[in-house]
Simulated assay, not measured.
Amino acid sequence: MSPSSSASEPAALVTGGTRGIGRVIVARLAGAGYRVLTCGRREPADLPGGVAFRRADVREPEEATGLVRAAAAQFGRLDLVVNNAGGGPPAPAATASPGLVTAIVRLNLLAPFFVAQAANAVMQEQPDGGLIVNIGSVASLRPAPGTAAYAAAKGGLEVLTRALALEWAPRVRVNAVTAGLVRTDENAAHYGDEATLAAIARTIPLGRMATPEDVADAVLLLASPLAGYVTGTSLLVDGGGQRPRFVEPFE
């Protein structure tokens, strides 16, 4: 795909878009008319039609910068960057190894910072600027046992979102989507069997766990002209949070 082939169409970069939530974000953006490049450490067997792939480890500053520059060169512009790559295994805070803690923080906080820095350098030079969306987690608000490093990193990502929005305005907007409990093929077993999943759903005011499509739609909302005056904020997509236990006797 050359920059001139469809230069009027917006262009997006999505990190970690080969599976799970990221893959759905990629598909939603492509369906909305975006030219999309995504990345991962391993090339996937398939991707939605028309989506480009580049091998990259965004935890490495040089690779993050190279990825952003490659997207801008391929498309001739870069309108949207979605920092989706993230995650980490549960680990008790008392015994988590320094290596594991460092790896979780690098992926969930430092990598988005590196990608955002490179994206800002491109977007500041564009007449229409651009938008960076960080995919956060409700763990930053309500950490669960075993998630200390992950929750701390995602909490840092929320603060980073506000800080970058302040520094890079008015040309570049920076927002976050703070996702609640999301059911994907990859994490269904982590939450438990169908009975456990149903019990979890009953604790959520909207009566279900989020889907990857819910998160992707929030990204599209922030990328739409309707959100043109929105920056430095986190859009909470958690179905209303958790029902307080004290209401149960009245139901």
Results as ranks from 00 to 15, higher is better:
Val159Ala: 01
Gly156Asn: 04
Ala163Tyr: 01
Ser97Gln: 05
Ala111Glu: 12
Ala149His: 13
Pro145Asn: 02
Thr95Gly: 05
Pro143Asn: 10
Gly129Arg: 10
Leu141Val: 07
Gln124Thr: 14
Leu157Gly: 03
Thr102Pro: 01
Thr161Leu: 05
Met123Gly: 02
Ala103Met: 04
Tyr150Asp: 03
Leu100Arg: 05
Ala116Leu: 12
Gln117Ala: 08
Trp168His: 11
Val138Arg: 02
Leu109Cys: 12
Val101Pro: 02
Thr161Ala: 01
Leu131Val: 14
Trp168Val: 00
Arg142Trp: 11
Ala91Tyr: 07
Arg171Thr: 05
Ser140Ala: 15
Ser97Val: 01
Val101Ala: 15
Gly99Leu: 15
Asn108Tyr: 04
Ala94Lys: 08
Ala94Val: 13
Ile135Ser: 13
Ile104Gln: 05
Leu100Glu: 07
Arg162Asp: 04
Ala169Tyr: 06
Ala93Tyr: 08
Ala116Thr: 06
Gln117Gly: 08
Ala151Cys: 02
Ala111Ile: 10
Phe113Gly: 10
Arg171Cys: 08
Arg106Phe: 07
Glu158Leu: 11
Ser137Ile: 09
Ala94Phe: 00
Leu164Met: 14
Leu157Asp: 03
Thr102Met: 05
Val133Leu: 06
Gly129Met: 10
Leu131Lys: 03
Ala96Asn: 08
Ser137Met: 11
Val172His: 05
Ala96Tyr: 07
Ala148Trp: 11
Leu157Ala: 06
Gly146Asn: 08
Ala119Ser: 12
Val133His: 00
Leu109Thr: 06
Pro112Glu: 09
Asn134Asp: 13
Asn134Tyr: 06
Thr147Val: 06
Leu131Phe: 11
Ala169Trp: 06
Ala163His: 09
Phe114Tyr: 15
Ala152Ser: 15
Ala165Leu: 02
Pro112Gln: 14
Val105Tyr: 03
Gly99Lys: 08
Gly146Phe: 07
Ser137Tyr: 06
Phe113Asn: 03
Val159Lys: 14
Ala163Asp: 02
